[in-house]
């Protein structure tokens, strides 16, 4: 009984920590629902995407690519490249949550998002970890999931009722700008971001809608080279 109460308390701490992130999810999710409808997806497909893929940026880009008539193989590739960052999130949570049962890890994995990761890893690193740490993660991740489904449903339902002049699609780069700040920690990661953004912009008209993918690969390559160059300079006399 005391155990259950402690877990509940930790869950609530997670809820409190994620609260400031929640308002950004609403326009982002609505935009995703609207974009999916505009791309010609049936309401059930748009909801299926939120439930099965559950990754905002990927869903938004996938909807745009389907609307533009891109090749299915390219759409799958682009979606997975956008979500590749989840490997890093998952790996960096492993020291804190890797000891749990497979069932727990599957639930944690399904609910993994930029926001839940950012808030949880900061908490685990600075506030330390207790016995019920997985409940802290759940407290951050679960409300995002609920809100995401509600917001995409609202976007699908409202559809064209939101005037295009409001440009609520601008919420996507705004939300991701905030997520970009903490991942630029040093000069190599700044170089990765500058190259990724610059090349994706230059390759905007690349064939098969590969601009984002080319930008991402160029950015990672630049970050790795910059880190290696920095090491070499430090280790040389």
């Amino acid at each position: 009984m005391a155990n259950e109460q402690a877990a509940q308390q930790v869950f609530k701490n997670g809820l409190r920590a994620i609260a400031p992130m929640l308002p950004g999810v609403v326009p982002f999710g609505m935009t995703t629902g609207i974009a999916a409808t505009e791309a010609g997806l049936a309401p059930l497909m748009s909801m299926g995407m939120s439930l099965i893929i559950f990754a905002g940026a990927a869903q938004l880009v996938i909807a745009q690519l389907i609307g533009d008539g891109a090749l299915p193989l390219i759409i799958v590739l682009t979606g997975l490249i956008i979500n590749l960052r989840m490997v890093m999130y998952s790996a960096s949570l492993a020291p804190y949550l890797g000891h749990l049962s497979t069932r727990w890890k599957a639930a944690i994995a399904y609910l993994l998002t930029d926001q839940a990761y950012a808030v949880s890893i900061t908490h685990f690193m600075h506030a330390g970890v207790g016995q019920h740490r997985q409940w802290f993660y759940m407290g951050t991740a679960f409300p995002l999931w609920v809100l995401w489904l509600l917001a995409t449903a609202a976007g699908i339902w409202l559809g064209a009722a939101v005037p295009p002049g409001w440009q609520i699609g601008f919420a996507l780069p705004l939300v991701f700008l905030v997520l970009l700040v903490p991942v630029i920690r040093d000069r190599p990661s700044a170089a990765a971001a500058l190259t990724g953004g610059g090349v994706a912009l230059a390759a905007h008209d690349a064939p098969y809608h590969l601009g984002l993918t080319i930008g991402a690969i160029a950015g990672v390559a630049t970050g790795v080279s910059a880190e290696l160059a920095l090491h070499r300079r430090r280790s040389s006399p």
Partner: peptide
Amino acid sequence: YVPAAVIAAIVVP
């Protein structure tokens, strides 16, 4: 370097 590169490649365009 994946998060910085991918997020920037989404945001800038």
